[in-house]
Write a protein that binds this DNA or RNA. Structure first.
Length: 415
DNA sequence: TGTCCACTGGAAGGGAGGGCTT
DNA sequence: AAGCCCTCCCTTCCAGTGGACA
């Protein structure tokens, strides 16, 4: 059978199969539904807080916190969406939503704020102070009620300190025509401790806490969405329960629950199966974890890949763990194979820490007494996964079966 | 009990890449 | 074009450290 024959079969099977999805967009996490079950209280509170804008006065700054997938972003977008509709013709309400983690630096946050006001700034080159001044001028050139939503605000503070927030919380003192309110959203509850007291008190004039959903609540949310996403009778009750239970175990993350449901649906669809059962959910879970790691590994910078590759190769020779020094030696060898000039050990040590945070490696510092103090490092993921990704990598591929010279005698004695 | 290893992690600074003002 | 000033990524330097060993 030729390739086109195979494809014909695929398409035919797809067309013949019972349709699963009515509307799969409903399960994406940027979708904001008309109803947000179990968040009525937060919606009302946020609504009450921003309502003064409708009468042309500034609203209090609000600080929302809770773990990922507890509905902070959804509630914010939902309420602000309604507010903008309501304010039309009444008050010059303007909103800028910034995700600090995606945006990255303080500079880029202001860059985004300027764009929201149609103020032109280059994407690099200016001092932060300069961009801030332009933002302020742009803002005050006409009357604005400006709401700044800083999502994942904790990321910004951890990398850059709170200068930005300090400036922003004080900006109203220098504005004549406009008023600014800030909605801060944080996943990290410890975030408040990192903040200067003045900034904290002005930022959290109001506070809203988002508790994790429990399994029953997640189940309601899933049912709600599933009704819109799937055709009737496609989704087994058991599948919903399992999905809710899995997500509840992982700190009540609704986003994850919805992802599971969507992937499970896609698995069933691809197999041409008429319904989604518990087994699909389980397979979806495995699949998502697998994909997540694959993606993370693929997108690593070259030097980080080499470090992971070094740990992988050492793992063949040594059981358990390796230490920084060994990994650095191996890494240097790999560099000279490519060839590529190696980074310093200090930097590699930093890379190892970064990889530890993402979970690709496990690193913990250990003191070996007379034999110094170092990090014990092992792979955080399956070896087959690494081989799979690196074998298809242009630069790393040829190194995947390399035998580190510095540990040749070890590998020899082992085999 | 003190020594001393093999690092760790903070701090400062360099230079590449970018864009500003004049 | 010259002179500045940013950010980002990296290097260099160095004081600090937990615990096995003498």
């Amino acid at each position: 059978m030729g390739e086109s024959g195979v494809l014909d079969d695929v398409f035919e099977q797809f067309l013949k199969s019972t349709p699963i999805f009515k509307d799969r967009n409903v399960l994406r996490h940027d979708y904001i539904p008309d109803r947000l079950p179990h968040r009525e209280e937060q919606i009302r509170f946020l609504g009450e807080t921003v309502a003064p804008l409708l009468k042309n006065s500034r609203c209090s700054n609000v600080f929302l916190y809770g773990k990922t997938g507890t509905g902070k972003t959804a509630v914010t977008k939902y309420v602000l969406g309604k507010l903008v509709l309501k304010a039309h013709g009444l008050a010059p309400v303007n909103i800028c939503y910034v995700n600090c983690r995606l945006v990255g630096t303080e500079y880029k946050v202001f860059f985004n704020l300027c764009q929201a006001l149609d103020v032109k700034v280059p994407f690099t080159g200016l001092s932060v102070g300069e961009v801030f001044d332009r933002f302020r001028k742009g803002l005050d050139s006409e009357e604005h009620l400006f709401i700044i939503v800083l999502d994942e605000i904790d990321v910004l503070i951890k990398t850059r300190g709170d200068v930005l927030l300090y400036e922003l919380t004080r900006i109203n003192e220098t504005l004549l025509n406009s008023k600014v309110s800030i909605i801060g959203i944080s996943n990290d509850l410890r975030f408040k401790e990192l903040l200067e007291p003045r900034v904290l008190s002005s930022l959290s004039e109001e506070e809203i806490v988002f508790r994790p959903y429990d399994a029953a609540e997640l189940q309601n949310i899933l049912m709600d969405r599933a009704r819109m996403a799937f055709f009737d009778g496609v989704l087994h009750d058991g599948a919903v329960s399992l999905c809710a239970a899995l997500a509840a175990a992982e700190h009540g993350d609704a986003r994850r629950a919805l992802d599971l449901l969507r992937v499970a649906g896609e698995l069933a669809e691809r197999k041409g199966e008429p319904s989604i059962a518990e087994d699909h959910i389980r397979r979806a879970e495995k699949r998502m974890e697998h994909d997540r790691i694959l993606e993370a590994l693929k997108n690593l910078p070259l030097h980080s890949k080499l470090v992971v590759c070094g740990v992988y190769l050492l793992g063949k020779v040594k059981t358990n763990y390796s230490v920084t020094g060994d990994i650095y030696e191996t890494y240097r060898e790999l560099c000279s194979e490519l060839p590529l000039s190696p980074l310093t050990q200090r930097r590699v040590s930093g890379l190892i820490n970064e990889l530890d945070v993402t979970g690709l490696l496990n690193a913990r510092i250990a003191s070996m007494g007379r034999y110094g103090r170092t990090k014990k490092i092992s792979l955080g993921i399956g070896r087959s996964l690494i081989k799979e990704v690196f074998a298809n990598d242009d630069r790393i591929g040829p190194l995947i079966d390399y035998a580190p010279k510095c540990f040749a005698e070890l590998s020899g004695s082992k085999s």
